[in-house]
Amino acid sequence: MKSAPDYPLRFPVVALVTSAGGLDALSRVLAPLPADLPAAILVSQHLDPSRLSHLTAILAKRTALRVGEAVDGDELVPGVALVVPAARHLLVTSAARIGLLDTGALPPARPSADLLLATLAVTCGPRALAVVLTGKGSDAQAGIRAIAHCGGTVFAQDEGTSAHFGMPGAAIGTGLVHAVLPLAGIAGAIRRHVDRHV
């Protein structure tokens, strides 16, 4: 495992990945975070690509962070939360920029938490934080293995506060989750992680 200075990204990046029940969970995690958080945020929620998504606009009203929909080539910037658009997969590139891929009609889930987390792991290393929130299915299992392999940190929402425990339960089942947290405790844990890695 390489040390943090060997990775391209020089600041913490927090990836919030979720599926069913994610809007409330994302809102409650992002709401307490300050506008000057010295970390970039990536938000990935499984979305129906055939329906117009209002996720970015809703979250922008619920947090002091700047929130925008990710665009191919966007630069990751501390204090900014980028939301993965429906029908796209998001990759983190070695230049600390966003790469978006069109999704196909078949799995993986859209957008894929596994693809996001795997590329975040190899660009951010120990500064990466994956937070697996409520959701159905097992997306993120492979991604958190990559995060852990590169020295990053993984949190999962607990069963009691999850609307659907599929994704968090699958994450916990890997044995690689560093903390299982109630929804109300996740924002504070994110801030503590960021403070240790700036």
Rank of each mutant, 00 (worst) to 15 (best):
M1E: 02
K2G: 02
K2N: 11
Y7K: 00
F11V: 08
L16N: 05
V17R: 04
V17P: 15
A20Y: 15
G21S: 02
D24H: 13
V29I: 15
A31C: 07
A31E: 15
P38N: 02
A40Y: 01
V43R: 06
V43A: 05
S44T: 13
L47F: 07
L47R: 12
L47Q: 15
S50Y: 10
S53Q: 12
H54F: 08
I58W: 09
K61Y: 01
K61V: 14
R62I: 05
R66G: 07
V67S: 11
G68I: 11
A70Q: 05
G73I: 02
D74S: 03
E75R: 14
P78R: 10
P78D: 04
L82N: 08
L82R: 15
V83S: 04
P85S: 12
P85C: 11
A86H: 03
H89S: 11
L91N: 10
S94V: 06
A96I: 01
G99F: 12
L101H: 05
L101C: 11
G104E: 13
L106M: 06
L115T: 09
T119L: 00
A121K: 00
V122G: 07
R127C: 10
L133A: 08
A140M: 12
G143H: 00
C150T: 15
D158W: 14
E159T: 10
H164T: 06
M167D: 06
G169D: 15
A171S: 12
T174E: 15
L181G: 13
A184H: 13
A187C: 08
G188C: 07
R191W: 00
R191G: 07
H193I: 04
